[in-house]
């Protein structure tokens, strides 16, 4: 059986953590694409019914505020992986 020295094991763990942080950051792309799509549809809705503008803005504000939380979760995980290991 191959035995690694503690330094090598430590380096492997650190590399895996950094790799994991990088993969976690991929989750930040999704909300951006989704928010953009929602904004496009909101513009379409305002063009169809200008009187509902206020309602559309509030719905979009709430939706976007909640939607971006998944992106921030990934950011928190990535930073925890980088700084704690």
């Amino acid at each position: 059986m191959v035995q690694f020295s503690p330094e090598v094991v430590d380096t492997i763990i650190r590399a895996a953590a950094l790799l994991g942080a990088g993969f976690a950051m991929i989750a930040g792309i999704g909300p951006g694409v989704g928010q953009g799509y929602a904004a496009g549809k909101a513009v379409e809705s305002v063009a169809r019914d200008p009187e509902a503008r206020g309602n559309i803005i509030t719905t979009m504000l709430l939706g976007q505020a909640v939607a971006e939380s998944t992106g921030i979760y990934s950011l928190v995980i990535a930073i925890v992986l980088i700084f704690t290991i």
Binding site: V33, G36, A39, G40, V43, V46, R53, I56, Q64
Partner: peptide, 14 residues
Amino acid sequence: ALKMDEEKAEKFIR
């Protein structure tokens, strides 16, 4: 974004 056209708004918000 709501003052722009659809494609521009999408890109802007993204």
